[in-house]
Structures are given as structure tokens and as C-alpha cells.
Amino acid sequence: MAEWKTPEDLKYTENDEWIRVEGDTAKIGLTDYAQDHLSDLVFVELPDVGEVLTKGEAFASVESVKAASDVYAPASGEVIAVNSKLDDAPETINSDPYGEGWFVEIKLSNKAELNDLMDAAAYAKHCAARE
């Protein structure tokens, strides 16, 4: 069975998004498990800077040859940066999901929302349970 990376410093959602909090802002991306299951990504649609995300809403979408999937906001906040490198190189999500493959950076509007998210150990279990 495959093993998926689940870095300790991140929080996770059931839908396989991760969030890395740095003070009042946070970066968001898709997990190793998600990229592995979607296979080679060929297209990413990202929001614009300035858009306000609500926790749980679909804010981006990714597409591989065989699947398309929405990406949901793990927390609410205004988009302050988007990783436009993904436009030309969506495969970065496959090769480096937790680093260069980040999607957006947001200014968190309600940090309390983060309490509902899973830690690395819980998320690793969540992945294993679905195999």
C-alpha cells in the first residue's frame, strides 16, 4: 500500500486540503493523498487576489486526464496571493504538493475555524481508512 506524506505542521480537511498557518495568514493546497489519486494534473483554476473565501466553499478546481475536482476552503479569509506558477505548471502539485504546489494565501478572518480541522495523525488515519 502506498504511503502519503502528511507533514506535522499542517492542518487537514476531510476533502484533502491542507492549510499552513503563519500568523494571521495561511497558505492552502491539496494533499499528497489527493494528488496521488487525481494522477497527473493538467489544469488548475485559481481565484483572483481580493476574493473572499468562506470556509467550505469551492474556491478552485483541478483537472487531471481522468478526473476533475473542486477544492474547498479549509478556512475563511481574503485571498492575498495566488500561485500563478500553477497555470503553466500544474504538475507542480504532483511533484511538491506541500511546497511549490500551494494554491492561495489568505488573510484568516476567523482563526477559531481551524479548531475543526484534523492534525497530521488524524488525517493519515483518514487516508488509510479510504484505501
Binding site: 483537472e63 487531471s64 486526464v65 481522468k66 478526473a67 476533475a68
Partner: peptide, 12 residues
């Protein structure tokens, strides 16, 4: 661009 289609995306 197959993921737009019904057999993959179903109701979406």
C-alpha cells in the same frame, strides 16, 4: 478535456 463529460463528472 474529458473531465467535462458526463461519464466522469456525472451531475457536474
Amino acid at each position: 478535456l474529458r473531465p467535462r463529460e458526463q461519464d466522469i463528472r456525472r451531475e457536474k
